[in-house]
Every structure is written in structure tokens, then in C-alpha cells.
Design a binder for these strands. Structure first.
Lengths: 197, 197, 197, 197
DNA sequence: GATGAATGAGGGTTCATTCAT
DNA sequence: CATGAATGAACCCTCATTCAT
């Protein structure tokens, strides 16, 4: 039995596919409908507008990311393992979300523009602050457990988050380049070396 | 006396202003003309299409970045100083290019999409490879000069580039947040500490 | 026990309410269903199309008007009294039919257009001719009864019908204006004075 | 040389033709463009929206009517002659404005609806008040000139305006019916008889 | 009979591009 | 060269109607 939520998900998935291929603005509602295998009008039974679809994708991405990071942060693993898994999750996200990275980039830009113009608060900024706090906690934990050396936690946390973003960002461009994946692994190792006791 | 190049620059500047405020797709040719203080038709005397304006902005950005990095890399400074200045240049770029960061993000996404679909080669990827090689050289230089410790150069270079991108990316969101600027400085310092001898 | 006719009436009433508020074209079937407290699909069990609902409203209006005028015309009152009551009935119709006056205006226009284009005969025109004959008869009666002076019956009948329409028409605009109501009473009195013996 | 005003008039004329034939809502912008012999987009160079076209038609109608009535009221004719000409002008308006009567009816209904819902003040109501005052003045003039008998001016003025509206309204339905025209003439004559000294 | 989810034709509006001046 | 009036393809969204349940 299909619930409303199922249907929404079906549409969102089609939308992600279409927007990834054509871009947020060029992606047509008609195409989303075709991909979802439903009629154009049906989409409007579940979303008031194209903008609302944007919002839903954004929320899905943010929700998924937060819950995933949460799960990793609250696991029984060692701090070092936690950090590695957070980085790897982010790395894999591109694969997990399919081509969603393009979409996130555009939503991000769009959102930031609107935020700048005072239209709305940034969900992305909130997400960031949350991730930042989470990383700080793990670092603390690691220091107390004598696993990490004493460090400027703010600097390292910022470095780590920037690293993750940078990797995602670049992976958009170097998609499918095997050599790039090796470089990333090397980068992560170098980072972890830098903070270990 | 206005050369053709001057006029093109005038249009590009107007385009950057408009696209930054409205986005690549929502930014209208009519608005660019208005901001540039010329007629709508005149734009088409200098650019064949809106897409060509996108390309010109992209080239300008890549050209500026490459020449700037080049200049820094070939200066007489110490390797450590060179790296710091490269990072700082990138950091300031957001300020230097005004609101161009939004635009770059969208061009990037657009470009990656087209690349994925086999339409054209990625200027961004080329730019990256170039930056990567430049950083590797500086690291090499630093190790030989006994300024940097022995390290996995590939990992560290990748880490550095990702750091730069991540910072730019996040600065889009945290624009104007003073605390964020402090965190960035801390992150850079942490990174430099990690590679020094 | 609800008969089919009851259900139709229920729908018509809802339709009148909706059309009065939103107009014939802007008034949505979905809203009618909501107001009627039934499902959208149910409306199509009783009416083949939106146009058929228009027709039903029109028929109801014409039927109500004709039967009412008939009743008044065939009553035992004096001719003068009859005319006064016909006018007053029309005057009150606006109140009786709620906001139906707007609807009638639009149906009228729509109908006239279709008639002009040869699509169908005008029920409104038939209704008019009937009213016209009725008034002529009452005038005759009044003249014979020595209650009305000799007159050009055609002219006076036309004048009276136009007066009624004009008042309804204007009352749409001056709805709720007390002063306007006084003016109308004065107009009717003036008219009656003009035909009395 | 075509001015902007000329172009607007050209579009309005096409719009009147289209709306008269199809109705306000069913009349398509595309059709207006076709009738005007211009491109669809061009219409939006001169009018912001379909609603603005409605407004322009309304203003044209009201402006024309007011200026015409004004001219008649301020002429050197006798009061009786003035009234006759005002009535005749209104009668002819249907012919003068082509099929505009249908349009006016719908604008009227639309406008009244909006007014009722508090959206805007009614231009039509203002026009009415103006006509009313004008007629009162003429009646006054006629009484002083011993041309009209003493009367309830408010009643007679209201009667006259209602007569005019009623005639226009009915002429929509009886368009082209010669007998109807005779009846109207008879009605006017009857009215004039009723007020003469 | 009753329902409302699904549909897609249709229309208002936008805007990149053209071209006559 | 420069212009901006004109254009029409394109697209979002609405809503009357259908039909499986």
C-alpha cells in the first residue's frame, strides 16, 4: 500500500535524477513526471510548486546527513574511528545520493543568495554548526582518551569540515577518476596522522 | 578610447553583479544591459549568447586564479610563506570577486554536469591539476629546504586544496560571521603546524 | 430520504454560493463539492459538466422568476397592486437569491454571446417576452378597470421592464447603500404616478 | 508614427473584439495578439497582465461615457433635448462600442464582486453617482425653464438611469430585433411625456 | 452510489534572441 | 555600432473530468 510519503519520495527521487542531469532551473516538471512515471498534474497533488520540491530535496539531504553523522558520532567506536567514518560517509555520500552533489551545490548557492538577501534563515548553516559541535565533541573525547594529542580544537574541527566539503566539491569534478580517490585516502591519512598522539 | 576588450569586460562585470544577485538562470540579459548602462542588443554584439557570457566569466575566474597562483608560486618567498599566501589569496578571493563565489558554484555544477554528459572537457579539472602540481612543487621545495618534514606529498597537497575549497564553500554560507573567520585562521595554522619540520 | 432532485438542489445551491463569490469561470468544481459537503466526483453523477450546472442555475432562476411573476399576475389584487408587487419581487430577488445577481449577469452575457453565435436559443429572451406579455395584460386590465389612464402600453411595459432590470443591475453596485434604496422607492412611486388615472 | 498610446489602443481594440466573442476568461491572450496582428509577447510590452487589459477596457468605457455625457449635458440644447440625447447616446453605445456591452456586463460583475470583498473601490459606482448628479441638474434646469413639471427629482433621476441600464441590458439579448427598437422608442417617449409640463 | 487520486490539455507569462532603424 | 521593440518557444501551474476502488 502506497502512502502519501511513499509517493512524495517517488517524486523526489525522480526530481533528483532530473535536476542532477539538467540543473535546478532547466529541469522541467514534465520530465520529473515522466521519470516518476506519473502525470504532470499529479506532482502538484504532492508539492505546491517547484520551489517546494527544491525544499524537500534540501531537507532530505540535510536530514539524511544529520541523522547519519549522529549515528556515527554516537556509536561505540573509538574517536579516531568515528572521525574516519564521518569522513568516509561524506565521501561516499556522493555515491549514496547518486548525482545529488550537483543539486546540493545549486541549492546551496540559491539558499545562500536568499539568505544574503534576508529571505530566510539558512538550514545549511544550522547543519554546519551542528556538525562542527559534533566534531569538537569527538576531538574532546579523543584527547581525554589519550588517543589524540592536545590541539587547537577549533582549528582542527574547521580544518576537518573544510576538508570534507572540499573533497565532495572536487569529487564532483573528478568523478570516476581512480587516481583522485587514492589522493583522497592519502589526504585523510595525513590528516589523521596530524592529530594522533 | 574603449577597445572591444574593455566593452566585454564592462559587460562581464555587469553580468557577474547580476548573476550573483539572481543566479545564473534567473539573471536576465535585460538586467545585465541595464547594469552595464547599455542596450540589450549591444550585448549580442560582443557575446553570441548567454552561454558565452557564462564561459567568459568562467575563463576570467580561472585565468585570474591561475595567474595569481602562478605569481605567488614563482615569487622569492619561502615555501611556507608561499603556501600561506596561496591559502590567503583563495580566502580573499571571495572578497576580491565580490559575490562571485555563488556564480562559481553554479558554473561548477553546470560544467560538471556537461562534462559528465560528455559535452566538453572541464576547465575546472584542468585548473585543479595545475594547482595540484604547483602545490606539490612547493612542498618538494620546502622539504628540500628542510622547512617541511618528510610527508606524503600527494595526501598533503590534496588536503590543502580541499581545505581551500571547503573554506570558500563555507564562507559562502557564513558570510560576514566574524567568528567563522577566526576559525579559519585557526584551521590554517593547524595545517601549517602539521607539516612544519 | 434524499431524492435525486434534492441532491441536485444541494449542488446547485453550493454552486450559486461559489460562483457568486468567485465568478462563473473562476469558481471551481472542487470548491462546489467542498461547500456541498460531498466529493468532487459525486457532482458528475448529477451533472454531466460545469456547463450543465450553469444551465441548471439559469433554469432555476428563470423558473423561479416566471412562476413568481405568474403567481403575482394571477392573484386577486388590483392591477396597480400587481405591478407594484412585481417590481418589489424583482427588487427583493437580489436579496432572495443572495448574491445570485452577479451570476445572472454573467450567465446573461455568456448566453447572449452564444446566442449571437447561433449556438442556442435564448431562454432569457423567452422569459422577457413572457414578462412583457404579462405586463401588457395587467396594464390592459388596469385601463379597463379605469385604474390606469389610457397610454401607449408597449412603451410603458418596456419602460417598466427596463426599470426593473436597471434597478437590479445598479443594486449590484450600490449593495448596502441605504440611500440608494430610498431612491428606488421614489423611482417606483414616480412611475406609478405616471400611469395612474 | 505610432505612439505607445496608439499601440495600446490597437491592443485594446483587439481585446474588446476577442472578449466580446469569447468572454473575459475564455478570451485568450494569443487570440488578442492574432487579431491585433502582433506577437503574443508584444502584448506584455504594453500591459503587465490580462487583468491590466481588463482595467484599460473599463477605463476606456467609463472615460468615454463620462466625457460623452458631459458634452451632452453642457450643450446649448433644451433640458428635454438633453435628456433625450443622453438616453439615445446610451442606446447607441451598444452600437458605438461594438460588442462591448457583453464585456461591460462581465467587468461590472467582476468589479462588484471585488468591491464586495473589499478589494477596491468601484469606478462604476463613481460613474453612476456622477451621472445621477448630472441628470438631477438637467431636471432642475428644466423645471426652472418651465419645461418640466414639478416632480420628485430623485425618483425621476433614478428612474431614468435605471431605464437606460435596463435598455442596454435588454438590448444585449434582443440584439438585432427591430421590434425591440420600436418598443424602446415608445418607452422613452412615455417617460418624457410623464415629466413634461 | 460515492469518492478523490490521477490526469493532461490549455493558457498566462517570461525572456533570450533578432533585426529594422 | 548601438538600440530596444517585437517575437514566440518554452514552461509552470490550474482545474475540469475520469475512473478504479
Amino acid at each position: 500500500m502506497k502512502t502519501v510519503e511513499d509517493k512524495k519520495t517517488q517524486i523526489i527521487n525522480a526530481a533528483v535524477e532530473v535536476f542532477a542531469k539538467q540543473g535546478l532551473e532547466k529541469g522541467k516538471i514534465a520530465d520529473i513526471a515522466k521519470v516518476a512515471g506519473i502525470g504532470k498534474g499529479t506532482i502538484y497533488e504532492y508539492f505546491k510548486s517547484k520551489d517546494e520540491i527544491f525544499g524537500a530535496i534540501e531537507n532530505m539531504f540535510i536530514g539524511d546527513s544529520v541523522s547519519q553523522i549522529d549515528k556515527l558520532a554516537n556509536s561505540k567506536k573509538t574517536p579516531r574511528k568515528k572521525l574516519e567514518e564521518i569522513v568516509n560517509y561524506s565521501l561516499n555520500m556522493h555515491g549514496l545520493m547518486g548525482d545529488a552533489a550537483y543539486i546540493i551545490a545549486e541549492l546551496w548557492a540559491q539558499h545562500s543568495r536568499e539568505q544574503l538577501q534576508g529571505h530566510k534563515e539558512s538550514h545549511f548553516a544550522n547543519m554546519y554548526s551542528y556538525f562542527y559541535d559534533t566534531v569538537i565533541n569527538i576531538l574532546d573525547e579523543g584527547i581525554k582518551a589519550n588517543e589524540f594529542r592536545k590541539m587547537d580544537k577549533n582549528g582542527i574541527a574547521t580544518l576537518l569540515l573544510a576538508l570534507i566539503d572540499g573533497i565532495i566539491w572536487q569529487s564532483v569534478i573528478f568523478k570516476g577518476d581512480m587516481e583522485f580517490n587514492l589522493k583522497i585516502q592519502a589526504a585523510i591519512k595525513s590528516f589523521m596522522e596530524g592529530i594522533k598522539k
